[in-house]
């Protein structure tokens, strides 16, 4: 898939994120938007998955350990055909399929997550199972940078490094903002790359985690890395793609009001139209 095609998908995903959280009057747009390019690339180019066969035992796995970015994951899955895009409109509604945080019962969702630090352990278990059974599938897990403050993240890293799980690829969405402020203001996990290296990981720093070429090359390097798990630390922009949300921590866990919704959708639609002219 070429970058323009991917950008068009990412633009649709961003619109879905805004629609879903606006209708739900809640949810987490900021961290969904920062992670959009990465998840779009994984599900449309990198991962071996089939929307028609979401439970195939040989599929690649993805665990959204930063489960609050569920609107982003759901939108990517819907745009990829795992379930109708219309489901996004019912996000977080009573009786709806799409729960506030990822749930394994949703087609395409490989693990329930949302309590930070837990998804990465589950992903480690999936990668371990592949090693046990000599299966070639790969497991990806995305963590928030604030999530690195959870001790369980490092328990899992110690195990994955020790067991040389080279079929495991972690992605840290390093947008540098958590609910209570910047990472440094709250409890800095930096230097992230050195920490993961010390735990036996191959680390790839991606300067712009909202850039498809840089991400593509990182995933290629991860797939070629043998004998150790990989951690991709990607610098991203929280709220990416909507000017008034970018780098603004206030948009971590808040939906747009009617006026903001219109402004956000107008901006995304304009960007989408431009992409279609490319």
């Amino acid at each position: 898939m070429n970058n323009t095609q991917l950008e068009i998908i990412a633009n649709k995903v961003r619109q879905d994120i805004i629609v879903g959280t606006f209708n739900a009057k809640s949810g987490h747009p900021g961290g969904s938007l920062s992670a959009t390019e990465c998840m779009v690339l994984l599900y449309n180019e990198i991962m071996n998955i089939d929307p028609a066969d979401p439970d195939n035992p040989d599929r690649d796995r993805f665990v959204l350990s930063k489960g609050h970015a569920a609107p982003g994951l759901y939108s990517v899955l819907a745009e990829r055909g795992f379930f109708p895009v219309a489901e996004i409109e019912n996000l977080r509604h009573l009786g709806a399929m799409l729960q506030g945080h990822p749930h394994i019962a949703i087609p395409g969702v490989d693990m329930s997550s949302g309590s930070l630090g837990q998804g990465v352990s589950a992903a480690t278990g999936m990668a371990l199972s592949a090693k046990m059974d000599n299966k070639s599938y790969r497991t990806y897990a995305m963590l928030g940078d604030g999530e690195l403050e959870e001790g369980q993240v490092w328990e899992a890293a110690m195990f994955a490094g020790n067991h040389k799980l080279d079929n495991l690829c972690l992605i840290v969405d390093n947008n540098n903002l958590q609910i209570d402020g910047t990472l440094e203001e709250v409890n800095s996990p930096y230097p992230i790359d050195e920490k993961y290296r010390a735990f036996g990981f191959h680390v790839i720093n991606v300067e712009d985690g909202n850039d498809f070429d840089q991400l593509r090359s990182a995933f290629a390097e991860a797939a070629q890395t043998k004998g150790k798990p990989t951690c991709i630390v990607m610098k991203t922009v929280k709220g990416k793609g909507i000017s008034f949300m970018e780098n603004n921590v206030g948009w971590h866990g808040k939906a747009t009001n009617a006026e903001e919704y219109k402004a956000a959708m107008d901006e995304l639609k304009r960007a989408g139209e431009e992409l279609c002219r490319k």
Partner: peptide, 16 residues
């Protein structure tokens, strides 16, 4: 690391 053990166990269980 009991917490991680339960999490890895969960991941293993998702694969059958």
């Amino acid at each position: 690391q009991e917490g991680n053990m339960m999490g890895i166990a969960a991941g293993l269980a998702t694969t059958g």
